[in-house]
Design a protein around this nucleic acid. Structure first.
Lengths: 156, 156
DNA sequence: ACTATTTGGTCAACCACGTTGACTACCCTA
DNA sequence: TAGGGTAGTCAACGTGGTTGACCAAATAGT
């Protein structure tokens, strides 16, 4: 083998596989529960919009993409009924983006499914090792300045 | 907060953030080392092609995408000089896809950078916790039938 | 040996998701 | 009131994926 069988290669592959499995399982379950159009990226967008709502520009900043990209994503999610737009009474330039009741339903169901998936990991690994895994990732995150503090992602 | 602040939400976010940080750091370094056009997806494609080469159809199967998508990705990587096509002497339908010397260079440098990044994680976390983290992810992987055994990904 | 089927590659149309650049409408401040 | 920054949108484009259709070559089954 030319080069890839080095220790460092395992880490990104395992992180990606773990993430993808979680997300794939989530969306298979969400499809069963009445949200077949919800795609992996949408969850992060709904999270980033948050219960207080936001604007396309701010959403772009939160997600690390351009305001144009954020605007197009909002368009799609509005078309699917997960987001809605409203005028800002105080500033006629701004258009508020809010999560609809359907969007909240998807978010709620995601939370439940994620909890169940985490329980399944805990059943295999043991609860303390799952917690240790999260702690370790969080440690690396803070050491390397991950962007985990994005507003709206965890509960802002 | 509506729903997201539940324990299960932390896991996917941490896995994604960890993966993205690793990949972002890798490509920043690769850009510095003469591979600015190499995008995150390309590494997986080069890995999947492997030193023995393959065909577009087989590549699609390995990556879990259609043969058309694989073909277009090969087109782009051929244009960038990372892959090359050749006729199959034994089967006139097949077109062999092979990694070029430039492709191998990118793969080799990726391996080195990944090793260095893993060392940085080990410096923060301690080597035994990085190993434990990998073990845990591997355990969950085998329990949940991850697709880590994709040919070419680890060194097939 | 000759059909019939499977397989590999490609073309076309389309969609999701991102980019930059240009432009309008609006707010704010000197 | 004139200027500058900000919010949103439009257009053009790139990338990475999808389906469906199609042809040519290999293979299987009489």
């Amino acid at each position: 083998m030319a080069t890839p069988d080095r220790p460092g290669f395992a880490l990104p592959l395992l992180l990606l596989a773990g993430f993808r499995t979680l997300i794939d399982d989530l969306h298979a379950e969400l499809a069963r529960q009445g949200h077949p159009e919800l795609r992996p990226a949408h969850g992060f967008v709904l999270q980033a919009v948050g219960v207080d709502g936001t604007t396309a520009s701010e959403l772009g900043q939160r997600l690390g993409v351009s305001k144009q990209a954020a605007g197009k994503t909002v368009d799609r999610l509005v078309a699917l009924g997960y987001l809605e737009r409203a005028d800002d009474l105080a500033d006629a330039r701004r258009k508020l983006v809010r999560v609809t009741e359907r969007g909240l339903d998807g978010l709620r169901r995601s939370a439940v499914v994620f909890d169940e998936l985490r329980d399944r990991w805990a059943a295999t690994l043991g609860p303390e090792r799952v917690a240790a895994l999260e702690d370790d990732l969080r440690t690396v995150a803070s050491a390397n300045f991950f962007r985990l503090d994005v507003p709206g992602w965890f509960g802002g």
